[in-house]
Simulated scan of single mutants.
Amino acid sequence: MASNQEEIKLFGMLASPFVSRVEIALKLKGIEYKYEEEKWGNLSETLFKYNPVYKKVPVLVHNDKPISESLVILEYIDETWKQNPILPSDAHKRALARFWSNFIDDKYMNALRKVLYTVDEKECKIYIEESEVALEFLENELKDKFFGGEDIGLVDITAVFIAFWLPIIEEVMGLKLLNIGKFPKLYKWSQDFNNHPIVKEKLPPRESLLAFYKARFAS
């Protein structure tokens, strides 16, 4: 637990999977923090002060020292509070966890962004294939119940978007990306991950998220 002298704030936003990553990690560690909700399209001056480079959530402020970018924050949390580690102790396994977490952001999230914001149908098909190739790599990498073994770890937390956000986006867009026939292990992992008691407590309400994306894609 954080000591009484520590002040921990998290600047976040309901619809952000990157913020959810940080909330899950803090909950896993048993760290109490103050949550500051930012508004989509109307971010606060305080947030800009703490994250002048990227001007976005999440930002973790620990004793008035800000840390931004979700993967950087996750590593900071793991190094600062040693209980319930989210990174393996073995150096090679730790490097692999970092590799796959970066892969999710670089390959999968980027491909999916193109799927969502491309109007041209032919191009969209190419990006869907790209995103499926990325999911295949993750399907083959998943050896246990979770990427972290029997307990959730860095890669699982990074992949919260795939487990929880993706089915909502599929519903809004009329797509089928996380196909149980194509990706049986990933599909089962997503169910186990979403139902993990700590994860479940920190995921945003599904209906609110669904309404948010319906409104966003309608505009």
Rank of each mutant, 00 (worst) to 15 (best):
P17W: 08
Y187F: 15
F183Y: 15
L74I: 11
G12D: 06
E79M: 03
K202P: 00
L178M: 06
A163Y: 00
P17I: 06
N63G: 07
V155N: 05
D144W: 14
P85Y: 14
E139Q: 12
D106N: 07
R21E: 06
I162H: 01
R21F: 02
G181P: 00
R206W: 08
Y54T: 10
K145G: 07
L112E: 01
Y33M: 05
F48A: 13
F212G: 12
S208E: 15
F99N: 01
A211R: 12
D105F: 02
I126N: 15
I169S: 00
L175C: 04
A215V: 01
G181W: 01
F212S: 11
L209T: 07
K49Q: 15
Q191M: 12
K49H: 15
G148K: 04
K143S: 13
L112D: 01
K214T: 09
S44T: 14
F164Y: 14
L203R: 02
P204S: 08
K114L: 14
I157Q: 04
A97W: 01
I180D: 01
L60K: 11
M109V: 11
D120T: 11
Y76P: 12
L138Y: 13
H92K: 15
A111E: 10
F147P: 09
D90E: 11
R113P: 00
A95G: 11
L60V: 09
F147V: 10
N140H: 06
E207S: 10
I86Y: 11
F99T: 01
I24M: 03
K176D: 10
K145L: 13
I126W: 02
L203A: 09
R94K: 15
E75Y: 08
I152E: 03
A2T: 13
F103W: 04
K125E: 15
K39F: 08
L87W: 07
A215P: 01
E130W: 08
S3F: 08
K93T: 01
D156I: 05
P205R: 10
P205D: 08
N4Y: 08
